[in-house]
Every structure is written in C-alpha cells, then in structure tokens.
Amino acid sequence: MKTAHALEFKDTGDADDPIADVAKQLADLRTTLETKAANDNRLTERLDRIEAKINRPGNKSAANDNEPQVETKALNSFLRGGLQSLDDVEKKTLNLGTTTAGGFVVAPDYSTRVIEGLTQFSPLRSLANVMSIGTTETYIPILTSGTDGGWVTETGPRPSAEPAFDQANIKTFEYAATLPVSVQLLEDSAVDLASLLQRWITKKFGKAEASAFVVGDGNGKPTGLLHTPADYTQIVADQDGSDFLEKLINLFYALPGEYANVGAWMMKRSTMGFIRQLADVSPLRRSMWSDSLANGTPATLLGRPIFEAPDMDGILSTASPGAETYPVVFGDYASAYQIVDRVGVAVMRDDFTGADNGIVKLRARRRVGGKPILPEAVVVLKATA
C-alpha cells in the first residue's frame, strides 16, 4: 500500500546521480512558488488600485458597496438643510412626523426651565418712605407752619407763635387674584408649578402697585405721585426738544437745595435716551449726563441719579390734538410720598371649593396704600405741544 505525499519526486532518467536530480527538482519548485507569490502580490495591488478608484468622491462610473444608503443620505441632508432640502424619496425614508415611518422611536426632550417675560417696575417704592400699619388706614400729621422767633432787647417782649398742623389720611386697598389649576397638572408637572405661579403672582402684584404709586387715581387703589401734577412746581418745555436741556437745568434749581441734595430723577427709558442724545451734541453740555462705571448703579444727570419709570409719560403726546405731558420728575421722594403696607403678598392654596372638578385654586391678595404728602419736595417738567 502506497502512502500519498504532498511532494512527489519523478525520475528524470538520470539514474547515475539521484542527488543531483532531487536538487534540480527542488530548484524548479522554488522558482514556481516565487513566481506564484509575485503574481498574487501584483493581483492584490491591482485590486487595491481599482477599489481606491471606485471609492473616490463623486465617482459614479461603477458600483460602490461603500456608498451611503438612502437613509444615511436623507439624514445628512436633513441636518444640513431641513426638510425642504429632501426629495420625495428621502422624505419618505426619513419622516419623523409620521409615527409609522419612524416617529414612534423619536422621544422629545422637555426642559424644566420656564422662560418668563420681562416685568418692569416703577422704582417709587425703593425711593419713597414706607411704613407698616396694623389697621385699614392711617393719619400722618404734617407741620404746615412752624414758630418764627424774633430779635429782642434785654427786657423787651418775646414774640409768640403757634405751629399749624394738618394731616394726611392714607387708606389701604386690596389687590387680589385667583388662579385655578388642575390637581393632576400640579401633580404631574415636570417643574415646581406651585412655586412658579407664586413667583409670577408676586411679580404681577409688584407691577400693579408700582404703577398705582405713579399714576393711580385713588379710586380703589393708591393715589399716584403724578395723579395731580398741578400740586407741584412746574417748569414748561416744548415737546420738540428745542429747549429741553435748558429747562432741565431750570427744573433742577427750582427744587429747594435741601431736597435737591438727596433728590433723584424719574423718567421713561425713551426720555433718558432723548436727553442723552441732546447732551452728546454739545461738548459743553456733555457733562450734564454721566454714565455709571459700577454695575447696577444708575447714571446721573446734573450729579443726581436717574431711575427708569416705565409708567410715566413720554415727551410726545399720543393724543390728537397733542396734549401736554409730564415726562420728567425730580425730587426727594422719601419726603414727598408715603407708602403704607398692611398685608404683604399672601398666597393661599384652596383645595376644597374646586375639589368636585379636580381644581386647586391659588388665591393671592395684597393690601397696600400710598399718597403724596409733601408736594414741595418734588418739581415736574411739563412738555407742551
């Protein structure tokens, strides 16, 4: 029985030298194997060159197994240009709006941050005199005239005079609101909805009272500082701005020095911009306005701070025909205006009256009053058409 061998030597007929015959066949085998390896390397290099040529960007001449699938192309086009950049086939392939076409697998992400709009306040509460009371109203004595002495001789008669008093009556008024919210919404909301609504109520109450402190008519609400402008010393300016800076200087010096030394300006932001533009025109007047270098510190006009009051008049009247406006106030508001607090902003949660309908009611209320008490501490600029 013969055994099969991977390598078989054939008799070449040279029986005299078998060793030489074996050496010759080994040399032929080595040459064959080297030739085959060289051919394989050339084939591999050729295949590599063909594959690299096919894979070049923009090559459409041959099929390319590595070319992006339509889903990949659709997603790439969508991220770059939105839905309008997709053709009909790509839209059908990538369609988040249709649940059966992939919408089910896309989960939206919700932020727990709630964006709140800006609420602007008139600054009178921070400038006026504020006191708390324990009842519905208060009376504040006002000294209208004091006692004047006189020069006397050693034994001459001494003049006598009695002080005269008046009193200001300040009533408190209630501001209230009720917010109905479903129980399930309070339970399932991703944010602390109850705290968010309380902050929102507090801001809205603050805005309402700040507006009343400036322009309130006293009917069910505080009496505003500018409810009766005729009570104050007035400086008249033209609404076209031709004499505005001059009148501001007159206004500043129309207020007694004791009040002016601690006084402040109040005006709308648009009025502030108008005055600054006028002051920047002339180098001599540029020093009237000075911006603050510290964050949070107001700018100054003629050395006194300026506060923005969004509830005040602008320079120009919106009425037709044009009416007079009161765009600038300067004074010592701590002496001129009194605010009384009876009850701060109180929010009560009512779980019972709306329980049959699954409603929780947030009931908020505030009791506060305010009134001008010393008109001599404020001067007003009146702009006429």
Results as ranks from 00 to 15, higher is better:
residue 64 N to V: 02
residue 64 N to M: 01
residue 68 P to W: 02
residue 70 V to C: 01
residue 72 T to S: 08
residue 73 K to Q: 14
residue 75 L to R: 11
residue 75 L to K: 10
residue 76 N to R: 13
residue 78 F to G: 00
residue 79 L to D: 03
residue 81 G to V: 00
residue 81 G to C: 03
residue 85 S to G: 03
residue 85 S to Q: 09
residue 86 L to K: 03
residue 86 L to Q: 05
residue 87 D to P: 03
residue 87 D to Q: 01
residue 88 D to C: 00
residue 88 D to N: 09
residue 89 V to Y: 04
residue 91 K to R: 15
residue 93 T to W: 02
residue 94 L to S: 04
residue 95 N to A: 11
residue 95 N to D: 14
residue 96 L to V: 13
residue 96 L to Q: 07
residue 98 T to F: 02
residue 98 T to V: 10
residue 98 T to E: 14
residue 99 T to P: 05
residue 101 A to Q: 13
residue 102 G to D: 07
residue 104 F to A: 15
residue 109 D to Y: 11
residue 110 Y to F: 15
residue 110 Y to R: 10
residue 111 S to C: 02
residue 114 V to T: 11
residue 114 V to F: 05
residue 114 V to C: 05
residue 120 Q to A: 11
residue 121 F to H: 12
residue 123 P to C: 03
residue 124 L to N: 05
residue 124 L to V: 10
residue 125 R to D: 06
residue 127 L to V: 06
residue 132 S to G: 13
residue 134 G to M: 08
residue 135 T to C: 06
residue 135 T to F: 07
residue 136 T to A: 15
residue 137 E to I: 01
residue 138 T to W: 12
residue 139 Y to N: 15
residue 144 T to G: 06
residue 145 S to A: 15
residue 147 T to E: 12
residue 148 D to R: 10
residue 152 V to W: 02
residue 154 E to M: 03
residue 154 E to V: 04
residue 154 E to Y: 05
residue 155 T to Q: 12
residue 157 P to T: 09
residue 157 P to W: 06
residue 158 R to C: 02
residue 159 P to M: 02
residue 159 P to D: 05
residue 159 P to S: 07
residue 160 S to L: 11
residue 161 A to F: 03
residue 162 E to C: 00
residue 167 Q to E: 12
residue 168 A to S: 14
residue 168 A to P: 01
